[in-house]
């Protein structure tokens, strides 16, 4: 056990856990931030994607000591009222089926949109292939990312 200081969604936390504990389980079990999901535990599905210093990482394989003192953003911190362009677009397109994969999808898409403000289908395919949606909402995810790009452009 060791104390690790974390900055998540702008808030400071200090947790006493084994430093090799994945960020995913610290978020879910210790901090009650359960929007970040467990799907595979081996970096193969993307359900657990969060932002670490602005980069999309799979929190299931990100040891907590790697996140110490760094900025972490989870789905709960993407926007205060659920009005990030991606969330608005997701809502408008009504993307989810079961919804389990969607926070990971959105967190991956957020990094894509920052890097490529107007992604093509090919850009989306490339950036989003690490995120499985077992319900098969891929077409709506693509549509929503395009829509979010539009919303984001208008905001600028």
């Amino acid at each position: 056990m060791a104390t690790t200081n974390l900055k998540i969604n702008g808030k400071e936390y200090s947790v006493d856990v084994d430093p090799s504990t994945p960020l995913l389980w610290v978020l879910r079990d210790h901090l009650n931030l359960v929007g970040t999901k467990y799907g595979c535990g081996v970096a193969a599905c993307g359900a657990c994607v969060v932002h670490l210093e602005g980069e999309a990482v799979r929190s299931c394989v990100t040891k907590i000591n790697r996140a110490a003192g760094k900025e972490v953003v989870t789905i709960e911190g993407l926007s205060e009222h659920g009005d990030h362009p991606l969330q608005k677009a997701w809502e408008q397109v009504d993307v989810p089926q079961c919804g389990y994969c969607q926070s990971g999808q959105i967190m991956s898409a957020a990094v894509l949109l920052r890097e490529i403000p107007n992604p093509t289908d090919e850009d989306i395919d490339l950036a989003m292939t690490g995120n499985i949606c077992r319900c098969g909402t891929y077409l709506r995810i693509r549509e929503a990312i395009h829509l979010a790009a539009e919303i984001q452009t208008k905001l600028k």
Binding site: L33, V34, G35, T36, T74, I75, E76, G82, Q87, W90, E91, D94, V95, P96, G99, Q102, S103, I106
Partner: peptide, 8 residues
């Protein structure tokens, strides 16, 4: 439930 899903 869409909003709850999107907000985690």
């Amino acid at each position: 439930e869409v909003k709850n899903i999107l907000m985690g």
